[in-house]
């Protein structure tokens, strides 16, 4: 992983008068990334007001219109407004990206913490499963899971798609969480807590989990970028979101492939939307890592 996190000890978490201000000062690029993310969030939440057209409304009179005053980014073969579809597409991208990354990382963190804390057989069993899961390239695993689970939509989101994207994240987060936990378990204050007769629950909640918050946050942001990219790839292969739902990867796939040589705007803008979103999450994630992880700070 590009984001291999090392563990900060409890007191190494930045303690500053105003952490937000510090972040802005130290990590201007990260702030830039955050601003782009916020822009997408605004698009997703306010799509109804921002998008000039209904993203699913067919208007054959405007078929394959070039970008211009009427349609900022042009239209597709059904005469649907590309700009509006991108704005609404932010919903799909963010929902899938954020949810699958959070689910994957949370499950992974719990697994990893349990593995590291209990050690012994539990650790061994979990690690073997993690090894096996890590032997599949992400997209291969996701494609098999999509094929196995099919589609299950609720609240306008395909939950099986989220599961397929979250699953490959679990073992990676588990690895990181385990090594963080191991280094904490080795600390004297854990021994002390154990000696004092505190319950596992209390030790995990009070001492272990707070200490893996930093790697957790780093991984969550890093995987959001990857999840968005993976969703786009799956939709491109026809395995993700389905027409007429606006989704960026979908806008590059299927029959669009027949038209993009004559109507390049059909693929230029959605592709740029994906790139910018992933770029922003990466930028923010990198800065967050640098900021939370004192060892990497120069």
């Amino acid at each position: 992983m590009a984001t291999v996190a090392t563990t900060p000890s409890a007191d190494a978490l930045p303690k500053r008068a105003n952490p937000l201000w510090q972040f802005i000062k130290v990590q201007p690029l990260g702030v830039f990334g955050l601003l782009i993310i916020l822009l997408y969030v605004v698009c997703a939440l306010g799509a109804k007001w921002i998008a000039p057209y209904d993203p699913e409304a067919i208007d054959f009179a405007a078929m394959l219109a070039k970008p211009g005053e009427e349609h900022l980014f042009g239209t597709d073969q059904y005469g649907r407004d590309v700009f509006s579809r991108i704005v609404y597409g932010a919903r799909t991208a963010l929902a899938v990206g954020i949810l699958s990354s959070m689910f994957g990382c949370t499950l992974g963190a719990l697994l990893g913490a349990a593995s590291g804390y209990f050690g012994g057989r539990i650790d061994n069993a979990i690690q073997r499963v993690v090894d096996i899961m890590l032997s599949f390239p992400i997209i291969v695993l996701a494609m098999v899971v999509v094929a196995v689970l099919g589609k299950r939509a609720a609240l306008g989101i395909d939950w099986n798609l989220i599961a397929a994207i979250a699953l490959p994240i679990i073992p990676k987060m588990a690895r990181v969480a385990r090594s963080s936990t191991l280094s904490i378990v080795a600390m004297p204050f854990i021994d002390a807590a154990r000696a004092a007769g505190f319950s596992h629950k209390r030790i995990i909640l009070r001492h272990i989990l707070p200490n893996i918050v930093a790697p957790y946050l780093i991984m969550v942001t890093a995987f959001m970028a990857q999840a968005i990219l993976l969703e786009a790839s799956l939709s491109f292969l026809g395995l993700g979101v389905t027409e007429p739902t606006p989704a960026w990867g979908l806008m590059l796939s299927g029959t669009s492939a027949d038209f993009y040589q004559t109507a390049p705007w059909m693929i230029l803008f959605p592709g740029a939307a994906i790139t910018l979103a992933v770029f922003a999450f990466n930028l923010f994630g990198d800065s967050l890592r640098d900021w939370l992880d004192p060892k990497l700070k120069s």
Binding site: F236, I267, G271, T275, A277, F279
Partner: peptide, 21 residues
């Protein structure tokens, strides 16, 4: 480099085809 991480390879492929054309 950061943008290299962000560009979907299939989109880059389409852009290359467009450019060649």
């Amino acid at each position: 480099a950061v943008s290299g991480l962000a560009v979907p390879s299939f989109w880059l492929g389409m852009l290359i085809i467009l450019a060649l054309l």
